[in-house]
């Protein structure tokens, strides 16, 4: 094979990415167009109506955008007190030891569990607990979904944060020790500030994962098409409304679902891009 042919083959293979991504964007936009055209773009974003009575179809994305943001934000809040200790355990306290690699294997495996199985566990183990604690009558809702979601994103946040914590130079830590600091003080006043932007960006990427998580949320959020009025009430996320209704929808409803898909795609793309750019910056420093 000549060098020229080889170059062409590689180039053609690389073209697959622009083609697929362009296709994703194009298909989402063209199929969402009907809904945006019918309801108006802003109106679609700000309406929380979702009714498919024939002749008076009303679709808006607000309930689901709220549902997604609520579950993601709560998941992030629950995720931090678990993932930060894991990152410190692996990247600082037990850096390079056997026990650290055991813990990181466990978190890796946690990342590998299919989301439908997280959903089952949440439904059959966590939901009854929520009911018996009198948190909500059916046990499902934003809070239940967020708790399981938090566990799902711990591995991502923890492994990336640990990487940045490991990169804090020994010189700096020893300097701080030589001034009389305890381990806790070194972590608070040297490790966190130095690794801070990297840790922050790993949480941004974890948010990116939580935003699009489908099955777990679908099985646990309760699937009601309203804006959740508290963290224990039921609702729907953007991904879960699509999973629930896509199979049976056509016409304007299908287009509305695809429009929600487009919004979700844009939000995750934006969050992921911010996260990646920040990570690159944090690596250079």
């Amino acid at each position: 094979m000549s060098d020229k042919l080889y170059k062409i083959i590689l180039f053609v293979a690389a073209l697959v990415m622009p083609v697929v991504c362009g296709g994703v964007f194009y298909a989402l936009v063209t199929d969402a167009y009907e809904a945006f055209d019918y309801f108006g773009f802003l109106n679609f974003l700000t309406s929380s109506e979702w009714s498919y009575t024939e002749g008076n179809e009303q679709y808006g994305a607000l309930s689901f955008i709220t549902g997604t943001l609520m579950t993601t934000l709560l998941a992030l809040i629950f995720c931090i007190p678990l993932s930060l200790p894991v990152a410190l355990f692996v990247g600082e306290y037990f850096k390079g030891t056997k026990i650290a690699s055991v813990l990181s294997t466990i978190t890796d495996l946690l990342a590998g569990i299919p989301s439908i199985i997280y959903g089952l566990w949440g439904f059959y183990t966590l939901r009854p607990i929520m009911i018996s604690l009198n948190i909500s009558p059916q046990g499902s809702g934003v809070l239940t979904a967020s708790l399981v979601l938090a566990i799902m994103i711990v591995p991502y946040a923890a492994s990336l944060s640990a990487e940045f914590i490991k990169m804090v130079p020994t010189d700096l830590k020893e300097s701080a020790y030589s001034l009389g600091a305890t381990h806790a003080e070194v972590i608070r006043k040297v490790v966190f500030p130095v690794a801070g932007s990297g840790i922050f960006s790993s949480y941004i990427l974890a948010i990116g994962r939580a935003l699009g998580e489908t099955m777990t949320v679908t099985m646990l959020i309760g699937n009601t098409n309203n804006i959740p009025n508290s963290i224990t009430s039921t609702g729907n996320s953007m991904a879960s409304i699509i999973a629930n209704q896509f199979g049976e929808a056509d016409g304007l409803r299908l287009s509305s679902l695809i429009a929600i898909g487009l919004i979700l795609f844009l939000i995750t793309a934006l969050i992921n891009m911010i996260g990646k750019v920040m990570i690159k910056r944090a690596r250079i420093v």
């Binding site: 130079p169 010189d171 700096l172 020893e174 300097s175 701080a176 020790y177 030589s178 001034l179 009389g180 600091a181 003080e185 070194v186 006043k189 040297v190 500030p193 130095v194 801070g196 420093v285």
Partner: peptide
């Protein structure tokens, strides 16, 4: 360590602190 100071081979001022805060970092850390 508070009674014995140490200076290392490679200069290592704390990169997130200003010059002012670097001088005072021993107090902050303690």
């Amino acid at each position: 360590r508070r009674r014995v100071g140490m200076v290392f081979q490679r200069p290592a001022p704390f990169p997130t602190m200003s010059i002012y805060d670097n001088v005072l970092s021993g107090f902050a850390l303690n």
